[in-house]
Design a protein around this nucleic acid. Structure first.
Lengths: 330, 330
DNA sequence: TCAAGATGCTAATTCGAATTATTACAGGCT
DNA sequence: AGCCTGTAATAATTCGAATTAGCATCTTGA
């Protein structure tokens, strides 16, 4: 393998010192730094000819900034089983990274005992200027360590504090769920059920919280169950069901129609956008969409702010209501 | 943000030298390196107490490997319109990269006038230890420059020489197409047509070449046309059609059946696996599959060989025959 | 008792780039 | 000549860890 070129090599070729090459490369014009036009041109010509680029490792050892943004996921991002979930986020991330002229470093390597970890014995997280974290849940210890070590990062998805506020760009599930309940109440619904975990990941907790707030505000009846069969719901007199999982909502609609019930005539089904499993499209569930692509874009922008101003941005993007055909009047 | 501890700090605390800390940390026992048990324990205790971990950047500077593999595509990889094409390759790439402990650098920044280029005024291609190139076609000048500059890379897809042999991992389209013709001849077919560009990208040329070799070897009739209507084919007495594009094959089957013809009774349709446009799945075309995922894996392995032994690997992986239901006897 | 050998540790150097302090030199002025 | 002022470039240092050569000190054995 041809040895990688160094500034020393470039310097030799251009007949100058390594320091001069560095100064030309970084286009330094500050007071106290002067390079003759002719010399500058000569060095640039050698750089152009050789295609030299500074070794990011060495560069980063000395100061900061590689124009490399890291993307960390606990799982492989490409496998098609995960494609539906990661894809839109990554689209946004790539788009924005392209815009600000940064390359993306996908951390695929930091494994300990078969599982990906942010911090392993030889974590490369610091190779990047900063890092976007992607995944439904993030290890709290990892988050805490990121904070204490002062590694610039932004989480996609809201995160609770982990020994300090966690910079994030999330979706405003609370408002989105409240909006669904508001609409249903306006249509005459008075007895609601929320089906889903409602805990664990912040995204689940936020949805449930939005649900509870909304039913409380309207003074209507709302229960939460992890799972529920059709009979159970009917027996309880429930007229509107909200399911965390898209596929659960779809299954419910199919089950109801299979029994000769009308949706939304006899039962309204609303879904809360967490499509971790593929679901049939043709049902046209009423609910909301998660602005995944936009979240990816904003996360990169937020990371830029972190890097430039050492801030701790926290932002929730609005979800868009999806009309669908499974919400009706009572 | 608390300043990060260095080995120097640890050394001071333990009352030893920085070198000793490094030796203890790396558990060096080689000949010529001896650390007393007592000293070793003292250093380890300080390390444990402080939670010190070596700065990976500094560590990397020392050996000449960044453990970063580049992935270059002329287009964004994530957008869903391209997902079908890139996805399987990337799966394989990610998988193998994970295996050998390398991170992936996606070049999203190298744009000149809106288009991605490998070499721009400020090419970052050398950020990676080596690079995998992905795309149906690659700019020949870019390839030539990669070769002359001695940048370690592997192309996914066979490539003609570009001022020298181009390292690549491709699919053996020639053999795959020959195999299809062989099977058709065995079933009694004597008049063939090849529909598709048959030039431009190597992948197209290879298919056509395989076709020509096969018909020549069997002494049967084979014509090549970029496009052809059903009538044209029937008039010429053709009984077996090979289409480069999957969607062309599907269209042909539908057209034939629309006219009351039987496929494969009256006409056999074979497709050559280049699915650049989405095609209906339900037809069950006979043809072959391209081992995309495996190509991705092998490309990374090949790149490893390039990096370690400065070789120029060239490899064609076999395509797998797909039985389908559109090939029959005459 | 003293050379030979083992033991335990450290000084110094390296990696590649960025930065600061400093030198070298030309030209203008007294 | 002697002195100052710009200008242009370089030597030297820094970042943090890894490595190697080598310096003390302590044992042995004859």
């Amino acid at each position: 393998m041809a040895k990688r070129l160094t500034q020393q090599d470039i310097a030799r070729m251009a007949g100058v010192s390594q320091a001069t090459v560095s100064l030309v490369l970084n286009n330094r014009q500050d007071a106290g730094v002067r390079i003759a036009q002719e010399t500058r041109a000569r060095v640039l010509e050698v750089i152009r000819r050789t295609g030299y680029v500074a070794n990011p490792i060495a560069r980063r050892l000395h100061d900061h900034r590689n124009r490399i943004l890291g993307v960390f996921t606990y799982e492989a991002v490409f496998p098609s089983t995960r494609a539906d979930f990661y894809q839109p986020f990554l689209e946004g991330i790539e788009e924005q990274a392209e815009e600000i002229g940064c390359d993306l470093l996908l951390f695929t390597s930091a494994k300990t005992g078969g599982k990906r970890r942010i911090f392993s014995d030889d974590s490369r997280i610091r190779l990047a200027d900063g890092c976007v974290l992607l995944g439904r849940t993030l290890d709290r210890d990892d988050l805490a360590q990121l904070l204490t070590e002062g590694i610039p990062f932004v989480s996609i998805g809201r995160r609770d504090d982990a020994g300090g506020p966690v910079p994030h760009v999330g979706a405003d599930y609370r408002a989105a769920v409240r909006n669904l309940v508001d609409r249903a109440v306006a249509l005459g619904h008075r007895k609601f059920a929320y089906i889903g975990a409602g805990n664990g990941a912040e995204s689940s907790a936020d949805r449930l919280r939005g649900f509870r707030e909304a039913v409380a505000a309207h003074g209507v009846d709302g229960t939460h169950v992890p799972f529920a069969g059709l009979d159970q719901l009917r027996d309880a007199g429930i007229t509107a069901v909200l399911t965390e999982e898209v596929s659960d909502g779809a299954a419910l609609v199919l089950a109801a129609r299979g029994r000769g019930l009308s949706v939304p005539g006899d039962l309204s089904v609303l879904t809360l956008g967490a499509a971790t499993r593929p679901a049939p499209e043709e049902i046209g569930l009423t609910g909301f969409t998660i602005p995944r692509r936009e979240m990816g874009r904003r996360a990169v922008q937020a990371l830029t702010e972190v890097l430039e101003n050492a801030t701790t941005p926290q932002e929730l993007l609005p979800c868009e209501f999806v009309e669908g055909s499974t919400l009706g009047g009572v």
